[in-house]
Amino acid sequence: MSQDQYFKDLEEIENLQKSLTRYMMYYKFAMEEIGTKISILQQEFQYIHSYNPIEHVKSRLKNTQSIINKLKRRGYEFSIDSIRQNVLDIAGIRIICSFTSDIYRVAGMLMQQRDIEVIEYKDYIENPKPNGYQSLHMILKIPVFMSDRVEQVYVEVQIRTIAMDFWASLEHKIYYKYDKEVPENLKEDLKDAADQIAHLDHKMEKIHKEMQKLRHENEIKGKAEDKETERVKPEAKDYEDEKDSSNISMKYFSMMLTNSMET
């Protein structure tokens, strides 16, 4: 690369960084929009339903340098249009659930939102990556309403269980420590740990379903007992009414007898 070309590329990157800093606010707003939708779902489950499938939520926004590095690695043009079309994970949200079934439940609720368009859907739970990685990935497109226009912005959403998130965090730290040159024995251990986590998630899911079944049976039993109580209550009330009526009659008879004797 000639010196002139080097300085030209450097100038392009500097100009892109300035434009990208202003452009990033759209991704921030889109991430907050999705975050609000998730928060509403959390509160709905907390106040209305007996079970909340969302444990906690994390969010992150790529910095400008990370975005530019991605353009370089993939050989994309240095422009805002290129970023809009090719870098779809600038804004990211990670949803952590307790059970695998919760992942699909939450994903379904998000996909049903009328202003959300699903651009990409990758199920690494049904089809784990070769290293054992599991998670559900979606690229969602959401409108951001500005004062003078509407921007369609992409947000990456990852949904996984607590166990999956723990494994992914550990794997990331190991790859970072070894600069992606991880020894084979560690790779094998990670894959084995991923398999055990998948088995654990499956077992916990089974326990969860058994608990739900018992709760449902107890609710039915409780309703049946309530109905029986309601059925018995009127009879008890009738008995009390009869008892009160009898007491009044006895008092009246006693009073009449007393008056008769005095006369």
Score class of each variant (00 low, 15 high):
residue 148 D to S: 10
residue 161 T to I: 04
residue 194 A to P: 01
residue 209 K to D: 11
residue 213 K to R: 11
residue 179 D to A: 06
residue 136 L to H: 08
residue 132 G to M: 11
residue 211 M to A: 07
residue 186 L to E: 05
residue 131 N to R: 06
residue 157 V to D: 08
residue 179 D to Y: 03
residue 210 E to H: 13
residue 160 R to C: 11
residue 169 S to P: 04
residue 165 D to L: 03
residue 184 E to L: 13
residue 190 L to I: 15
residue 143 P to I: 03
residue 137 H to S: 08
residue 134 Q to A: 09
residue 201 D to P: 07
residue 142 I to T: 14
residue 203 K to G: 00
residue 126 E to L: 12
residue 191 K to E: 03
residue 145 F to D: 03
residue 214 L to C: 05
residue 178 Y to R: 03
residue 179 D to Q: 11
residue 161 T to M: 05
residue 173 K to S: 15
residue 212 Q to K: 11
residue 185 N to L: 08
residue 153 V to N: 04
residue 127 N to T: 14
residue 196 Q to R: 15
residue 179 D to C: 01
residue 203 K to H: 04
residue 217 E to A: 15
residue 134 Q to K: 13
residue 190 L to H: 09
residue 138 M to A: 08
residue 126 E to F: 04
residue 143 P to T: 05
residue 216 H to V: 02
residue 178 Y to L: 03
residue 180 K to H: 10
residue 181 E to D: 08
residue 159 I to H: 07
residue 199 H to C: 02
residue 183 P to G: 12
residue 183 P to I: 05
residue 168 A to S: 15
residue 155 V to R: 00
residue 140 L to V: 12
residue 153 V to P: 02
residue 179 D to E: 12
residue 195 D to C: 02
residue 181 E to K: 11
residue 177 K to N: 08
residue 200 L to S: 12
residue 147 S to D: 14
residue 160 R to V: 05
residue 144 V to Y: 05
residue 164 M to V: 01
residue 188 E to Q: 12
residue 162 I to E: 05
residue 200 L to C: 10
residue 154 Y to H: 13
residue 148 D to V: 03
residue 203 K to W: 02
residue 189 D to T: 05
residue 167 W to Y: 00
residue 169 S to A: 14
residue 217 E to H: 09
residue 165 D to I: 02
residue 163 A to Q: 13
residue 136 L to C: 11
residue 208 H to Y: 13
residue 211 M to K: 10
residue 128 P to C: 00
residue 141 K to N: 15
residue 177 K to E: 09
residue 135 S to N: 13
residue 140 L to C: 05
residue 173 K to C: 06
residue 136 L to N: 10
residue 178 Y to G: 04
residue 197 I to Q: 03
residue 173 K to D: 15
residue 192 D to H: 10
residue 191 K to N: 08
residue 153 V to H: 05
residue 196 Q to I: 11
residue 173 K to E: 15
